[in-house]
Amino acid sequence: MQNKMIGYVMILAMLLFGGLSTVQAADGAKATNPEAAKVEKMIADADKARKKAASVEGEWRDVGKMLKKAKAALAKGDYKTAKKLAAKAKSQGEMGYKQAVAQKDLKMPSYLKY
């Protein structure tokens, strides 16, 4: 019943406020739904991993896109999709960081003869 009400409020808000609505809906969901807060934290952590990779020039192509999609899914209340995307983004952020750090020191390829 309460969920239904939230749904109606969301639709109304979307109609009335357009772009603003997603933010408000997400805030509203956060207040009432611990799951939403959890997903939000996952996205924030993934974004941290992305930034850490970027700090060593190791960010991968799709991490930013994944996070955007995760935020959109969260705003729609699709926690499952949002979680999956956030987890993937975090893992790719970590892998990109690891990849760059492992090559901190330049090693010239053996096929170049000096």
């Binding site: 020039e57 190791g58 090559q103 330049l106 096929y111």
Partner: peptide, 25 residues
């Protein structure tokens, strides 16, 4: 120059290629 050189030989991205992998090796 050294930074540019490092960039050239550093593997990047999920597919793990450096510039050199394709255009030298």
């Amino acid at each position: 120059y050294e930074k540019g050189k490092k960039f050239y030989y550093t593997r990047r991205g999920q597919l793990n290629f450096s510039c050199a992998n394709c255009h030298l090796q």
